[in-house]
Design a protein around this nucleic acid. Structure first.
Lengths: 241, 241
DNA sequence: CGAAGGTGTTAAATTCTTGTTAAACTTTTG
DNA sequence: CAAAAGTTTAACAAGAATTTAACACCTTCG
């Protein structure tokens, strides 16, 4: 799978130039123009069970500097291992930066040559791949969340959250339960009766038309995946193409 | 227990770089951007019964220079023994600095290499530990604390204490137990039933509305982290972004 | 005992969820 | 094809869940 790189720079032009070049090299590229937006992206991807493999981080940003954000990343168990390449103007002492970078981190000075950025990215990703394969043998790994995916449709059973192409979509409880059930066995048709039995609290008695209404509501929320939520005439519903 | 280092420098970037590196080495780090703020921190910590083990002090600061403040520290019985590492640009006479530094103090010139700072810090703290152990024949022995962190939100399970951005916040027992549970698995939704089961003494029977009230009370106490204590409608509560 | 602080309940405001209905639409069946 | 059966959808009213303040009842501790 393609490595996913997050570029954080408050200069949109720089983001776009980097995006273009790194996408050419076959990476998945995300961009953010500040720490706050970047954090949102990171949260979304991680809770949806996707990894971020590298962050290209501008040091000089307002209101939160790249350093500050990096510190937060390093104090969060989920992101402590994500390598960072710091970008900064040459004014800062090189040694300081070197001290800041830990683990697989790296740093690079502006104005940079694109070829240099590409080389560093490649080097950092090679290093982390090597590292993670070393530790794979020993470590149980950070708690992997309880996640069901179908292409870009993801539900996180721990968080009770649903993501559509990496954007969180708010679900009510019943909607969540119904989708979780159907998604747990794509291609399996569930009768309305069975859906009510599983997704509704026990002892609730409602018309089975109710299921239809919920299906409609879910369809609207999951966008392009709505079509996958299919009625099987006179049997019930199923998730799948 | 981790040694506590106070960094005083009017350049926030330098504070942050030093903080990052020293925290990585396992120190507790405080920063201040001037003598006045630094004095407040020192007062707070000392009156709360916490020690400051080392001060990394920039000499060139306005309005009060590092030298001036150091003089005050040396004339205060509570702080006369706290070692200081003075940082200054190379322009100052080395002899002058050497003359100023007394006891376990040290000095270091900017621009410094991080590795050098780390080495000096380690050396100074070793020296002071040696000194203080002369006078303490019986040590209680360092205890590795049981700590859960989420960014600046820290709870110490041994001491049953909670810190918000390095300031202690008083928690009641139930509040502490509830937060500890949620914080033990960020991103996991806990039902009210489960929270009552775990955080309340066994055999207590209370309405589950009670949990809500405690959540509200905790939210108020943890300030900016209050938003991370999230209700998942009709499921329960979860800690996380 | 009395003060201080912790805890559970209540109630009201607010916000969000859900079942039903009804009408339009689609598919199946005779 | 026409009737019957099944599905989709919008709208709405009922009611469930959450947040908070307030208060009463505890326990603890001097």
């Amino acid at each position: 799978m393609a490595k996913r790189i997050l570029i954080v720079d408050d200069e949109p032009d720089i983001c776009e130039i980097l995006r273009f070049n790194l996408e050419m090299d076959g990476y998945d590229v995300l961009t953010a123009e500040g720490a706050e937006e970047a954090q949102r992206i990171v949260d979304n991807y991680l809770s949806a069970g996707n990894s971020i493999d590298l962050i290209l981080l501008d040091v000089m940003m307002t209101p939160k500097s790249g350093f500050e954000w990096a510190k937060e990343l390093k104090s969060d168990a989920r992101t402590v291992g994500v390598p960072i390449i710091f970008c900064t103007a040459k004014t800062l002492e090189e040694d300081l930066l070197q001290g800041f970078a830990i683990g697989s981190d790296d740093y690079i000075f502006k104005p940079f040559r694109i070829s240099e950025v590409k080389a560093r990215v490649k080097a950092v990703l090679r290093r982390t791949r090597a590292e993670s394969e070393e530790s794979k043998t020993i470590l149980p790994g950070p708690t992997s969340s309880n996640i069901i995916k179908y292409e870009g449709l993801v539900i996180n059973l721990d968080r009770k959250e649903c993501y559509v192409d990496n954007k969180e979509v708010l679900f009510t409880r019943l909607e969540f339960e119904v989708l979780a059930l159907l998604l747990s066995k794509p291609g399996q048709v569930f009768s309305r009766e069975r859906i009510l039995q599983v997704a509704w609290p026990s002892n609730t008695i409602v018309l089975d038309r109710t299921v239809d209404v919920h299906i409609t509501r879910i369809r609207k929320k999951i966008g392009r995946y709505g079509d996958y939520l299919r009625a099987k005439f006179s049997y019930g519903y199923m998730f799948g193409r």
